[in-house]
Design a protein around this nucleic acid. Structure first.
Lengths: 252, 252
DNA sequence: CTATTGTCAATTGTCAACAATTGTACAAAC
DNA sequence: GTTTGTACAATTGTTGACAATTGACAATAG
């Protein structure tokens, strides 16, 4: 991999207000996560503790913790006494991950529709308005808009009221997707036309949540992810010369 | 907590065929997991590394890893530099966990229905047959039958073909549920009558999977978990003097 | 020529000491 | 009486050394 060092790594001195200092293992985990999803490791490549330790200028202890985090995120396979190996991210993997997230986000939407809490709804509407504004602005890049949409997803995940669900959506499978979306950048997908479509989809979701229509909220939320999945796969199939082996994909 | 020591802890010497030796952190994590779900820790109780280390006769290193595992399993909250605290398992938590599992298992059923693989279907049918036999036998305890049913769930989780999904179902939220089910033993629920009902439900699931009816498979699978959820909550509400604060529960 | 066993280097697992941080108790100041 | 500041003990974070295991390869036996 690229042997740059972690210059941006904050020592516990400066921390912004209310913001917990990120631990060394966290920083290493994030850095390596990015490296993995950016394709700086080959699939099945082995990760050696001592290597990372000298790279980041720490001992093997923190590195071990970081590697555990990578395992939790599904970015490496870890075998006791045999080491950690970077996962091979195939198109099938991406389909799988999208499907899981669709299912979980569907449940989150459902919980929100059941509870209809005002503070959340206000924030959601505000977020959607932001995205709408982005869509109307001329110079908005697909990437910029994608970030706005991702914030909406994050909002739903955080505030769904099911603590376990929030945790899963935060920790699990998130990095894989972002990596894919940014690395091979299939999300030139977000043409102005599709930006408006996405905004409409989210407005529909907000409406069903406000109305307490659980079933619809779940369905619409899932559909958003299925759309994203198909777009990502479609784009990636052109970049890579790889096919999805799955016998078809979930529709709704 | 109970200060018994880990006598059953295998040193790397003896291992059964094909069975990887369980690492020390794994063994500690499992032992403490059981202790937590068996109620040997109070909610919000702090876990000190050195305490566990001396308890199990190891240094703090392996204990730290075990604690991380507990965190992954959702059994402790961990705050950097402040320690690990046992989660407080409320009825709301249990509802949440069941809901997440229902969503994930629904997806698993769906994937299986799409792929209709013979080896799996054979195993599933065999497992159902076993459960049916149990239900027909006179002396079957609710607990014994519950284990049989749990095996079916495990089968679906393992073989769904979505690696990430399998991992989540294996590692996440599993221990919490089993603990609840066994500790406060609400699953006297499985009266002979309900045993037969459960078998019928699973037969229906198998049928829809064989027929490739994705949507139905998902729905039926979810329903099984919702039923289990309601049964567990109902039973626990009698044992504990606690109410579910959720404004109703998902039906299907 | 194949299979088994033995050695060896590379790597992960564990340990005990040390460093850094946190919460607390108590004192000082307003 | 409340707030602010400060030492202190308890606890977590990190380190470097050592132990144990693995996989590869060579030597040996069948």
């Amino acid at each position: 991999m690229d042997l740059e060092t972690l210059d941006g790594m904050q020592k516990p001195a400066s921390r912004r207000r209310g913001e917990r200092t990120r631990t060394i293992p966290e920083q290493i985990a994030d850095h390596v996560s990015n490296a993995i999803v950016n394709g700086e490791y080959r699939g099945d490549e082995r990760i050696r503790e001592q290597e990372l330790a000298t790279l980041y200028g720490v001992s093997r202890g923190p590195v071990r913790e970081a590697i555990r985090t990578l395992q939790e995120r599904g970015l490496v396979n870890f075998f006791p006494r045999r080491g950690a190996y970077v996962v091979n991210i195939t198109l099938d993997t991406i389909v799988d991950v999208f499907n899981v997230r669709a299912a979980l986000m569907g449940l989150a939407a459902r919980d929100l529709a059941r509870r209809k809490e005002m503070p959340f709804l206000a924030d959601l509407r505000a977020g959607i308005a932001d995205a709408k504004a982005l869509a109307k602005t001329k110079g908005t890049t697909p990437q910029h808009f994608a970030r706005g949409i991702a914030r909406l997803g994050g909002l739903v995940a955080e505030r769904c009221g099911n603590h376990h669900l929030s945790r899963l959506l935060r920790d699990q499978l998130n990095h894989t997707l972002w990596g894919v979306i940014w690395r091979d950048r299939p999300l030139d997908f977000f043409t102005p036309r599709r930006q408006h479509a996405a905004v409409r989809e989210w407005e529909a979701i907000a409406t069903t949540i406000e109305a307490g229509e659980e079933k619809s909220a779940e369905l619409l939320m899932r559909r958003v992810f299925f759309t994203a999945r198909d777009a990502a796969i479609g784009a990636l199939q052109q970049t890579r010369s790889e096919r999805v082996s799955r016998a078809g994909m979930i529709k709704d």
